[in-house]
Design a protein around this nucleic acid. Structure first.
Lengths: 234, 234
DNA sequence: ACTTGCAAATTGTATATACAAGTTAACATT
DNA sequence: AATGTTAACTTGTATATACAATTTGCAAGT
């Protein structure tokens, strides 16, 4: 018996669903029925049903039974990754250049973004990420100084801001907004692009369990950087 | 006992990790150790470890033990959703306009995109998605006619192309590319935007178990549409 | 006809046990 | 000193069993 019994039962059930034999919301055999059909114990049949439920293929409810889950696939997941990893894993040379690193007091917008009070200390780092010595992404980051006081002392050519923050204040939550924009004059200069060049802009807001840690604006030239994703549904 | 025992063990382990008490790659107690510490059977302790592993908190390997999973948070997941759902769920009025729907034979590029042979039949649909009667996304879709022969007969004001394909050929896999581009003349006209307007372009390639089903280019004006995502890590 | 109550079915939790299979470290042999 | 073997530990699979909790249909009683 090379493949485990519970795997065979999972495959059987999945095949029935995939072939359309068992359709959406239809009831599937109970643990006991599967157990006797496959000559296994109830716990083994249960494991098959349970794992398929964890994977989103089935729904179960106590007392009534197990059912084929309704359609998935309306949404796919995309991964937003650390740019330094992306570049090095693609076999390119990564480097970073710190444009500025300063302490300011929060204005109204920054106070909202970081969920703090106007006048609180905020670190602002402006870092240029480079692939093979070519500017590929400008990172403008606002950091809640109260939560990560030593952020200002770091050398971001040695460790990326994202890595440092992940270590100091482990992420519990993040939001992203992705849009296409026309860069402003400042960004055009730093990224060394033309004025008409569209840019991909990712705004990322990150939480740790103590609160909003940072708000970052990542701007990349549209012709040099794209986001990619690969999803597998089953 | 209101909360199950395995849940309490999970909470205990998770608390140790979150507090930094147990750090990355560190070994956690074995099934037998947990079983005796919590006065439960090995199978109950096992369930706690197994579920935390499924959730990505732990890694296990036969023979050697169970370990705290190494840092997550380098990547966050983003959801790519059906635009019709996004619009209606946001409380707006969704409508679609079929610009064209035709059958062609695959040229070299299309053959590669759909993994078919040059000369095979391909459906091309051009659909304009509208929010409150304002053009918000242009969908240019290439469909493998052999896999979804009745695609050409559909009325895409009643069902979105994505919904129809999901029903006919359930998704098993998808890739996405997101980039910022300058629209070409054709798109500028259809979306009724200015020439300099940057656009967010999503290229989506979808597979069902029978092969590549379709290749879609979704173009949206940068000032009217953005992708958003929210991730929770635990 | 309607409600009440009960029995059966179903999933959820938990235990005790057995053996398989991979890893590691100590030990013995060469 | 290097190598091979063994024993202990660990996770993986599988079974048999017990009881709890929920749902559902049926039957009895009003």
């Amino acid at each position: 018996m090379t493949t485990p019994k519970f795997t065979k039962i999972k495959e059987f059930i999945f095949a029935q669903i995939e072939s359309g034999n068992w359709s959406e919301d239809q009831r599937v055999p109970s643990e006991n029925e599967l157990a006797s059909q496959f000559s296994v114990s109830r716990m083994t049949a249960r494991r098959a049903l349970q794992e398929l439920t964890d994977e989103g293929v089935l729904n179960r409810s106590k007392g009534s039974g197990t059912f084929v889950a309704s359609f998935k696939s309306q949404s796919a997941l995309m991964e937003i990754r650390n740019i330094a990893d992306e570049i090095t894993e693609a076999g390119h040379k990564y480097s970073a250049q710190t444009i500025s690193l300063e302490t300011v007091t929060a204005d109204a917008q920054t106070a909202i973004d970081l969920n703090i009070t106007i006048g609180d200390s905020v670190y602002i780092s402006t870092i240029l990420h480079m692939q093979d010595d070519e500017a590929i992404q400008l990172e403008q980051r606002y950091v809640n100084a109260a939560l990560v006081p030593k952020y200002i002392e770091q050398d971001f050519s040695l460790i990326t801001s994202h890595e440092y923050l992940s270590k100091e204040a482990p992420l519990t939550e993040a939001t992203h907004q992705i849009e296409a924009v026309i860069a402003n004059a400042n960004i055009i200069t730093l990224l060394a692009i033309k004025a008409e060049q569209p840019c991909l802009q990712v705004k990322r807001r990150t939480w740790s369990r103590t609160g909003v840690v940072s708000f970052a604006i990542l701007t990349s030239p549209g012709n040099k950087y794209r986001l990619g994703g690969h999803s597998i549904f089953n």
